[in-house]
C-alpha cells in the first residue's frame, strides 16, 4: 500500500508538472530567452535587419533574443533548421525570398508551408545602376541597347539565378550577358572598374557608391518611388511593368500554439514601429514593409506565382 501511494504521488507530481508546463507555455510565454535563426552570415543585410529587429523586440517581449547565424546552402540550411525546430515559440526564423525560390528550383526540401508566419518586416526593391560616366542616360536607352545587341550588354549579377534581371528579360523579351558574381561586394567593383555595364542590387548596398559619384541609378523595381532615392524613377513610370525585390520576415515552425504566435506578432509589430528601429532602417537605406501574418501569407503566395513563372522559363 505504501508503495502504491508513493507511486501515485510521484505520478501526480509528474502530471501536474507536465500540465503546469503546458499552461505556462501559453500564458507566461516567454519565460526564457528566444533564439532568432538568421540563415545568412553576420555582417550582411539580413543579419543587420535581424539584429536591429531583435534589439527592438526585446523591449516588448521582456526576454533577450539571441541571434544565431546558421549559414549554408544559400539560406536553405538555416531555414530548414528553423522549420524543423520545436514549435514552442522559442525558435524564431528570419525567412527571406529564398524560402520561395529554393524549393521551386529543387534546392531545398522545405517550403513556406512548413512555417507559421509572424510578420513581414522589410522589403528592398531592386535598384539598377550603371557606372557614373556610362553612355546610358536612362533605362530606355539600356533596354533598347540590349534589344539591338542581343546578349551583348554585360550584367554583373549578384546571385544565380538572378530573379531581377529575369523579370526584366521576360517582360521585354530581351537578354543580357549575365556574369555571375558572389554578391554585391564583388559585382559593384566590376561595374565601377568598367568590366561590366550595370548591376542590380538593394538600395542599401549601392547608396555609398551613388553618393560617392561612382555609380548612377537608372531605375528602381518598386511599385512607387522610394524615400531614400526620390529622384530615381520606377520601372513602371518608364513603361516597363517590372516590380521585384527581396524581402525578410519572421516565422515559427508550423504547429506553434496560437496564443504564442499572437504574442510574438504583437511584439514584433511594435518592434517594427519602434522609432529606434525605424531610424536604423532609414540610416541603412533598408525599406520597412510591415505586413500582418495574414497579409504576409498572401504576399508569399503572389511572390511564389512570380518566381514559378520565372523558373519555368529558365
Amino acid at each position: 500500500m505504501k508503495k502504491i501511494i508513493s507511486l501515485l504521488s510521484v505520478f501526480a507530481i509528474l502530471t501536474t508538472a507536465v500540465f503546469a508546463e503546458g499552461t505556462q507555455d501559453a500564458a507566461a510565454y516567454p519565460t526564457k530567452s528566444i533564439n532568432l535563426i538568421v540563415p545568412f552570415s553576420a555582417g550582411g543585410g539580413t543579419d543587420a535587419v535581424a539584429r536591429a529587429l531583435a534589439k527592438s523586440a526585446e523591449k516588448y517581449l521582456g526576454q533577450s533574443i539571441v541571434v544565431l547565424n546558421k549559414t549554408g546552402g544559400s539560406g536553405a540550411v538555416g531555414m530548414t533548421a528553423g522549420a524543423t525546430s520545436t514549435p514552442d515559440g522559442y525558435t524564431v526564423t528570419m525567412i527571406t525570398r529564398e524560402i520561395v525560390s529554393l524549393p521551386l528550383m529543387g534546392l531545398a526540401q522545405i517550403t513556406p508551408d512548413d512555417f507559421d508566419l509572424i510578420r513581414l518586416a522589410n522589403m528592398d526593391p531592386a535598384l539598377l545602376c550603371v557606372k557614373e560616366d556610362s553612355p546610358y542616360e536612362n533605362i530606355q536607352q539600356l533596354v533598347e541597347a540590349a534589344r539591338a545587341d542581343d546578349g551583348g550588354i554585360r550584367f554583373a549579377s549578384t546571385a544565380k539565378p538572378n530573379f531581377y534581371i529575369l523579370a526584366l528579360e521576360n517582360n521585354q523579351g530581351i537578354s543580357f550577358n549575365q556574369i555571375p558574381f558572389n554578391g554585391a561586394a564583388e559585382a559593384i567593383p566590376s561595374v565601377i572598374g568598367g568590366h561590366t555595364d550595370f548591376t542590380i542590387a538593394g538600395p542599401g548596398e549601392l547608396i555609398a557608391q551613388i553618393e560617392g559619384k561612382q555609380l548612377r541609378p537608372l531605375a528602381i523595381m518598386a511599385p512607387e518611388r522610394i524615400k531614400a532615392l526620390p529622384d530615381v524613377p520606377t520601372f513602371k513610370e518608364e513603361g516597363y511593368d517590372v516590380v521585384s525585390g527581396t524581402w525578410r520576415g519572421l516565422a515559427v515552425p508550423k504547429g506553434t500554439p496560437e496564443a504564442i504566435k499572437t504574442k510574438l506578432e504583437d511584439a514584433f509589430a511594435k518592434a517594427i514601429a519602434d522609432p529606434e528601429f525605424v531610424s536604423f532602417m532609414e540610416n541603412a537605406k533598408l525599406g520597412i514593409y510591415d505586413l500582418s501574418s495574414e497579409d504576409f501569407r498572401e504576399y508569399i503566395n503572389s511572390d511564389t506565382a512570380v518566381i514559378t513563372d520565372i523558373v519555368s522559363k529558365l
Partner: peptide, 18 residues
C-alpha cells in the same frame, strides 16, 4: 572587412568614398 562594413552600417554610417 565585410563584417566591419556591417558594423558601420549598424552604427548608421555608410562606408565608402564619402
Amino acid at each position: 572587412a565585410a563584417i566591419l562594413l556591417g558594423a558601420l552600417i549598424i552604427q548608421g554610417i555608410a562606408p565608402g568614398p564619402m
